[in-house]
Design a protein around this nucleic acid. Structure first.
Lengths: 244, 244
DNA sequence: AAACTTTAAATGTCTGACATTAGTTTTTCA
DNA sequence: TGAAAAACTAATGTCAGACATTTAAAGTTT
């Protein structure tokens, strides 16, 4: 199954890569039990501690799970959409915050992707999606809402829109794009007037979803993107021109 | 920075989560050095082995890197688009192969996302993108190409199309959707006639990209999606109706 | 001043032990 | 006889301490 490690270059990483390949290639199938740590240590000719570090790496990627006890061990994990989404969000968020991605670029990507969902959401959305969207609009309309809560509600609104496409792969892919924007959005202070403009567009989009009018959803999203971009532009220009 | 672990529930996971939160929240910034393993062991009141397992988890997510030697240690990693993409592809591929996602659903998601790039690619594509696309078309036209090589070239073609949007966030997000389809595509046997149909559409799409006609790119992608779906439908129907 | 040597601090690895968990089997006894 | 209790067992989780290796910096020599 897995011999031949080149010495003096991070054994635990090599072992992890070895097992990962076996999983990705299908040599190890879902719910199959890996050899015990002691056996793996023998096979790879390393100590149990090194094997454990390798297994922890795989666990961090949700590739395996471990169970204690007599019949325990490490098992190939069926990665869930939920777990994959959580990882994707973490990665995307860090990627954006660490690489000086401009608000403009991230925003453009996000809205481009969301528009991709519009025709499908128009066709397949159920009442529950519309209910969520209207509920979030109601929340956004509360006067005393903090900027952060407003952003969080915005994310929930957009996720409902995406989920309306009833395509789990699409929802999963979009989760990263939508959620990763939140820290960037949180840098913005929303005036009452800008909130009103956004809410008005949310209403227009929701109406279009309810009317199953894909083109109108797309138009609404384009308008919302323009509004968001110009708002961000104003906020950042003001900040750099008049620093605190 | 990080006290208070609840005992008897996977200490290394708790420690990893603790440090991960510090990184995501920005309390630890890029290239900042973490305390040494020995210091972390003292702070968290666990053994060095446990700390190491936690650090390996973080390393598996590219959140930290480690350096040996006197001034070495664990450093917060600036996650690159490349590393993030690689992780995303692994995750997406496994997600699709392990969760009985239908070809139809995955294909729909992929083309929906790709169409999202069309307007931007039309506007911003450079000659190099077109060159890559034409080169891949030439490769796909080779008579003796294996199905697997044909699929790989198809992926390269589509990635060039996506890269034409000149938005790194978009390229990153799409990588998962495009690459993860490859194992599913590899299950298909391409007849000479179906290859010709696909290549003809690739040519049409490339022409549209060159002409900067976003709408035509979208139409081409929609046609290609229909072609792919019906091809897959035929192949799978034949297989289930007439098993080997 | 440059080249070499030593030192120190860090990660990488190994060993062996014990703790904890959770099935499985055996024993007890009502 | 049968069900509860106890013992067993195999696995992961954790710890302590040792040694190997790497690397930068400090010190020494020429």
């Amino acid at each position: 199954m897995k011999p031949s490690l080149s010495p003096s270059v991070d054994l635990s990483a090599q072992i992890a890569a070895n097992i990962r390949d076996a999983i990705v290639s299908g040599a190890l199938i879902v719910d199959e039990r890996l050899p015990s740590e002691a056996e793996l240590a023998l096979q790879f000719e390393v100590s149990r501690a090194t094997v454990r570090e390798a297994l922890k790496r795989l666990a961090a990627q949700s590739l395996i799970r471990t169970q204690r006890g007599a019949t325990g061990g490490a098992f190939v994990n069926r990665i869930s959409f939920q777990a994959a989404q959580a990882q994707q969000i973490t990665t995307s968020t860090l990627l954006l915050s660490m690489n000086d991605v401009s608000f403009e670029t991230a925003c453009e990507a996000r809205y481009a992707l969301e528009r991709a969902c519009a025709p499908l959401s128009a066709r397949r959305r159920s009442q529950s999606h519309i209910d969520v969207m209207r509920a979030e609009i109601a929340r956004q309309s509360q006067q005393d809402l903090s900027d952060e809560a407003f952003c969080a509600s915005d994310v929930a609104f957009h996720r409902a829109l995406v989920d309306g496409a009833c395509n789990p792969v699409l929802s999963y892919q979009l989760a990263g794009a939508v959620e990763a924007m939140q820290p960037l959005m949180n840098m913005i202070t929303f005036t009452a007037r800008s909130r009103d403009a956004i809410i008005a567009l949310h209403v227009a989009i929701t109406d279009a979803v309810e009317a199953q009018d894909g083109a109108a959803i797309g138009t609404g999203l384009t308008d919302l993107e323009a509004e968001t971009q110009s708002l961000a532009h104003r906020v950042f220009a003001q900040r750099s021109g008049q620093p605190a």
